[in-house]
Amino acid sequence: MAGNEKSKAKTEQAKGKAKEAAGRAVGNERMTAEGRTEQSKGDARQAKEKGKDAFRH
């Protein structure tokens, strides 16, 4: 289960980076902001999973 959550976090981060870059390329501030938000969600999910791992070991 934890591996699945970690992969979701990485996917969210990657999608966010791509969306942010695309938004910057076309000059769309909303898309850029959405990309940053997705990256933040991925970062939060990853931090949560790292915290779980710390208590597991």
Rank of each mutant, 00 (worst) to 15 (best):
A14E: 08
D43W: 04
K6E: 10
E12F: 08
H57L: 06
R45I: 07
M31Q: 14
A25E: 10
K17H: 04
A18G: 09
G27R: 08
E34K: 11
H57T: 12
N4C: 12
R45W: 05
K15Y: 01
R24W: 03
K10W: 00
S40T: 15
V26F: 07
Q46I: 07
E38T: 08
E38F: 01
G27K: 09
D53R: 11
A47E: 11
K6V: 11
G35L: 04
S40H: 12
K48F: 00
R36N: 13
D43A: 15
S40L: 14
A2H: 01
R36Y: 02
G3T: 11
G42P: 04
A2W: 01
K50G: 06
K10M: 06
A21S: 14
E20N: 08
A47R: 12
E34M: 12
E49H: 06
A14W: 01
G42Y: 02
S7H: 08
E38V: 03
K8Q: 09
G27C: 06
G27P: 00
K17L: 01
V26C: 05
K17M: 03
E20W: 00
G51I: 00
R36G: 09
A21F: 04
G3A: 09
K15I: 07
T11R: 14
S40E: 14
A14G: 03
E29N: 11
S7M: 09
G3P: 00
E12T: 05
Q13E: 05
E12G: 01
N4Y: 05
M31D: 12
G42K: 00
H57M: 13
Q39F: 03
T37P: 02
R30H: 07
S40G: 15
K6A: 00
V26P: 05
G3W: 00
R36P: 00
T32V: 12
A33I: 10
A44R: 14
N4D: 12
G23M: 06
R30D: 14
A47Y: 00
Q13N: 07
Q13T: 06
